Amino acid sequence: MTGSEAVTEGQRCGYVAIVGRPNVGKSTLLNHVLGQKLSITSRRPQTTRHQVLGIKTEDNVQTIFVDTPGMHKAEKKAINRYMNRAASSALTGVDAVVFVVDRLIWTEEDQLVLSKLSHAKCPVILVLNKVDRLKERKEELMQFLQEVSGKADFKAIMPVSALHGHNLKELEVMIDGLMPEGIHFFPEDQVTDRSSRFMASELVREKIMRQLGDELPYEMTVEIEEFKQEMRPKGPLLTISALILVERTSQKAIVIGDKGARLRQIGQEARIDMEKMFDSKVMLNLWVKVKGGWSDDDRALKSLGYDFD
């Protein structure tokens, strides 16, 4: 037996795309499967804008989950087209697909996702999320399960609650069984392919979306201008400077809030999560700047990290 054969014996490794329309709980599902916060979440649709890899290595199985933006019909701006391309491209070359829907709801956008899956050459697991809200509606759930089973040849249909962990272990066991034999692509302790700068920008964006709710349109993004770590007598200090970009002056005022109160709150909440994620004391500096039209400008999107390639 050669050295490489010895290494690969018994190992399995593969990619799993998590897809669905916006706001069905794809990122919450990934975070709970990984056992840690990786993808940002909020109650607002289209919180996820990029593909994010979440890597779980357990015993001999390494599963690489691809969290994707929600697929949606409206492509009003360049950023919407970017998100749809990012989601659709995740279906290429994966070993399994987890298609997430919201309880008993089937919309035109769910149908859109299903149409994208019609060419998938791998098993598709349909996941009905948020079933913890259906405790008194078991008959309706059974009827819906029967209806959706006729929509495609799914490998399985699994009711889960990503938030509360219901049925997630069973889902993981099924996914593990679909992973092909092969060497692990990533080190055992690696959980994502994304940089620390990217994760920092996402944490700031999450806090803005959670703080502002419907007050701020989607024309907001975060750019990290400084990410510097140094050793201090009391331990490491990470200095992060982030620029919050909006499209209009009125939006800038909303983010800053009365006498800067809202911006300070966003910074405090983001800093707490950053210190947990980076295991370091964090000094976070936030600024808000108006950059008109960035969300509908392909060149601006690419310069801000929305690079499809």
Results as ranks from 00 to 15, higher is better:
P217S: 08
I224C: 11
V204C: 04
M179T: 03
A242K: 05
S201M: 07
H166A: 10
I224E: 06
E230T: 14
T221P: 04
G182D: 09
M231V: 13
E181C: 08
D193A: 15
A162Q: 05
P187Q: 03
F154A: 10
P187G: 02
F185A: 14
M220F: 02
Y218V: 03
F198H: 06
G165W: 06
M179L: 10
L212M: 01
V191N: 03
F154S: 13
K228T: 10
I224R: 03
P233F: 10
L237C: 10
S241M: 13
P159L: 11
L237I: 14
F185R: 09
T192F: 06
L178A: 02
F227N: 02
E206Q: 15
G235D: 14
L171M: 10
Y218H: 14
V222L: 07
M174R: 07
S196R: 08
S161V: 05
F154C: 13
F227D: 01
M220Y: 01
D176I: 01
M220W: 00
I183E: 13
M209A: 04
L238M: 12
V204W: 00
S250K: 12
G177P: 05
K228F: 12
I208N: 01
G177Y: 06
H164L: 13
E230G: 09
L168C: 10
N167W: 05
L203Q: 06
F198C: 03
E202H: 02
E206G: 09
L163A: 14
K234N: 14
V246E: 02
L216H: 00
V173H: 10
Q211W: 07
E247H: 01
I175M: 02
E219R: 04
A200G: 09
D176E: 14
M179Q: 05
M209P: 02
Y218Q: 07
V160R: 04
L168A: 10
E172A: 07
M209D: 00
V191F: 15
G235Y: 11
M220E: 01
L212E: 00
I157A: 10
I224M: 11
V160P: 07
R210S: 00
K155Q: 15
R232D: 11
Q229S: 12
K207D: 01
S250V: 09
I157K: 06
D153P: 11
I244H: 03
F227G: 03
V173I: 14
I183V: 11
L171R: 02
S241N: 15
V246Y: 03
S241H: 13
F186A: 04
G213D: 00
M199Y: 04
G182I: 08
A200R: 02
F186M: 04
F198W: 02
S241Q: 15
R205D: 00
D153E: 15
A152K: 08
L212W: 01
E181P: 09
L163G: 04
P233V: 08
G235I: 11
P159C: 14
S196I: 02
T239H: 12
S195N: 03
E219L: 04
F185V: 12
S196M: 12
A156S: 13
V246W: 00
I183D: 12
A200Q: 02
P159M: 12
L178D: 01
E172G: 11
M158D: 06
V191T: 09
D176H: 14
D189W: 01
E181T: 13
T192K: 01
Q190Y: 09
P233N: 12
V246A: 05
Q190I: 12
T192C: 09
L216S: 00
M209I: 05
